[in-house]
Design a protein around this nucleic acid. Structure first.
Lengths: 209, 209
DNA sequence: GCGTGGTAATTAAGTACTCACTTAATTCAT
DNA sequence: ATGAATTAAGTGAGTACTTAATTACCACGC
């Protein structure tokens, strides 16, 4: 009988459920307007409870923020889908998969990227917990893979870490232009085309002649 | 009998001078703590005047912000030092010079970069005035140069705009890691070394075999 | 040189409002 | 009926912005 799609009738949830709800709503708001730019009132309204509920679960707004970082830093690792290709040493596929994953994730949910930038800019100590747990894993994976390929003689003797940053930089900049600065690329530059250009540029740049 | 070296005796400045002072102080503060994170009180204190002075020159805090963007978007163009090398068609030197200029500027004064990110994140309409006036000039210059090199047969037939973004992306990511996320690179990766790796990777990737 | 009047720069002390956070009481599931 | 979830109604400390009065500067006539 319940309409189903309407906003949930105000019900009483368990502490755990409500807590998760608050974290989710706050993450979205912080990512849109920043920590300082979001009021506890707005968060409460988004959840559909009173402000007092927030402070039952988190003693300060700051602690709510920390809980968000905690939660988000446990998300699935961005390089996992590329592991199979890495096993086969299929360079192009490794890079392509990685780029697709980075771009796709940010496009379907820009929350994490925006939160990361906001906290870095606002100088939150927590920003580098996030940075370390997510970005450094990717650095390690890619630079490790490149080191192997250099050792195997497949790549020129580039610095593996710098090479990793170079590739990640291309992809990251693409994402930023699109999601942060809202710059639409010209029509002929589809996402797939852009990815292919990055991968080819990188591999030509790095492979032995 | 004036001490000479002390802070200027003049208590009272002309409107024009004071206005510039306020803009400068506000730019620094906004770039450090964001628009919403900076109070008019702090700005006034930084300048050493009362809050009422700010509102004499700018009717709202928002208008002060607009004045900053106005000012900053007139700064020297980032690609000017590379024009000479572009004239000689010295590809490596064009890219090297560009990268040095981007990194050097941001390192000596991160204000502009931070302001740009903050305003993009906070969704200020003004963010894209800044973006357009500064970043798009660079896009045009680099992609124009690459188009010429492709036409001359020196480069493979890559998409010139995507190629420009790829190079800018590498450099931008370097700057961001360093200035925004405070990640120190390992010792062997000096800035010059990093730049050289980017340039070589890019040119190998893009030149005809 | 020397007062002096006009004007622009400057401020002290507000105002109305919003913020993070609190308290004490109420509702509901079991 | 107990205890956890929940809220209405605060509180004091900021916040952007205002107002009315005060001060320093300087061109001008003497």
């Amino acid at each position: 009988m319940d309409g189903g799609t309407g906003p949930a009738r105000r019900v009483r949830l368990t502490g755990e459920e409500r807590r998760r709800q608050i974290i989710e709503a706050a993450a979205t708001l912080f990512s849109r307007k920043g920590f300082r730019g979001t009021t506890t009132r707005e968060i409460a309204e988004a959840v559909g409870v009173s402000e007092a509920m927030l402070f039952k679960h988190f003693v300060t707004k700051e602690e709510l923020y920390a809980a968000i970082i905690e939660t988000k830093s446990h998300a699935r690792r961005v390089m996992d889908p590329a592991l199979a290709a890495a096993e086969r040493e299929d360079d192009a596929e490794v890079l392509r998969t990685l780029a697709r994953e980075m771009i796709g994730r940010t496009r379907t949910d820009p929350t994490l990227m925006r939160l990361t930038f906001f906290s870095a800019l606002e100088g939150h100590a927590l920003s580098d917990i996030m940075f370390r747990s997510r970005v450094q894993q990717l650095d390690d994976f890619l630079s490790g893979y490149f080191a192997k390929r250099v050792a195997a003689g497949a790549f020129r003797p580039v610095d593996p870490l710098q090479a990793a940053w170079n590739f990640i930089g291309m992809v990251a900049y693409h994402v930023q232009r699109f999601e942060l600065f809202k710059q639409k690329p010209p029509e002929h530059l589809t996402t797939e085309r852009a990815i292919e250009e990055m991968v080819q540029l990188f591999l030509n740049g790095v492979r032995r002649a």
